[in-house]
Design a protein around this nucleic acid. Sequence first.
DNA 1: AGTTTGGGTGAACGATTGTTCACTCAAAGT
DNA 2: ACTTTGAGTGAACAATCGTTCACCCAAACT
Lengths: 210, 210
Amino acid sequence: MTETRGERKERTRRAILDAALALLEESSLVALSLRQVSKQVGIVPTGFYRHFDSIEDLGMALVDESFESLRAMLRDVRQGREGGAPGWMDIVDDSIGILDEHVHRQRSHFAFIARERTAGPPLVREAIRHEIELCERELATDLARLPGTDRWSTEDLRVLSGLIVTAMVAFAENTLHAVGRPGAEKLVVENARTQLRMVLVGALNWTSRP
Amino acid sequence: MTETRGERKERTRRAILDAALALLEESSLVALSLRQVSKQVGIVPTGFYRHFDSIEDLGMALVDESFESLRAMLRDVRQGREGGAPGWMDIVDDSIGILDEHVHRQRSHFAFIARERTAGPPLVREAIRHEIELCERELATDLARLPGTDRWSTEDLRVLSGLIVTAMVAFAENTLHAVGRPGAEKLVVENARTQLRMVLVGALNWTSRP
DNA sequence: AGTTTGGGTGAACGATTGTTCACTCAAAGT
DNA sequence: ACTTTGAGTGAACAATCGTTCACCCAAACT
């Protein structure tokens, strides 16, 4: 059983991405060297260039990959909601549960996003910012579909989405920081649950300005 | 007019801190080299060790300094509130205005915190996390002093404070990202204002679980 | 007046960095 | 069967990195 050329290339490309993700759990892209990655993969430094132009280029690929998995999660959240119309608070509990599970399963992806969102090279930062803004938009249209949002201006829906996304980003960060401390983990989840409920109580009592 | 020994030392120490803050506006501590800082200050690399043990040590000093200025700001926020009892929404407007002004005046400090909070060396990250947690506690006791928080458990007050602080951190980050784009700046402020109002509407309609 | 202290200097070290170039050699294309 | 392609190699480069050491000299102390 021999390996086709493209297969082999894709395999080392994956190895590079995985090696980078592993190294980036404890440091940042701006401090990551091409040679560290090569060594971890088991190839010679120059081999790196066959797959990426630079560390920043690698970072852009990781942004794509990370948000691909994040979008898969968001599909899960929506899917868990369709069929039947559970109460607001059930939506909160389910969504946070799913997010929590995904953060654990894709730990390195979320850790990457959390770090490079503020510390990465400018292009990477901008790409992450853009992706998060897309998430906000999608959440806004989702919220618009729910009953009880009649009195909301589209502008206020966007602002509310921003608030929720901000809280969820913070929740993901806190979850990452709490892994391995089981007590702290439960606390972080409960914290996020209550916060989202508070926001929702605010939302349900909100009336957009004329 | 000669300079006393301690004065001279303090002057170069400040120069190092300032040089680091300037360099850290576009990069991160983990990518900052001792030699860059020395060159920017105008001293030889070894001179650095007369003031700090390492870059991480410098980072800890910057954490102290940054949160000292942040605490000064929080005093302003409280002071602007005492005397007279303006409405909730006035408190929101005033607080955000003050925060906005301070982010501009201490841009490099806030940029430092925003970056190293997630990307800095472990000790620096932990120090920043601790300081922010202190801010949450202080906000919680402040909120407890306000009228209308009778039906709130102290636990829920803490959770609410966490939500507000999270939103304010995000606001500061957005403000930093918007500097130089006057339109965007006004939008960011208006965004934060509305979000805080939403949270407050939620808070005013909240009843802690029995 | 004589001695100590300590901020700043400058050379030197071994290690690591990104990038170049000329190479191999097996898979893919002819 | 013969040629081309391209992933991976290995040597070499000029820079930069953190850290060491011995040194200077003016302020501070005795």
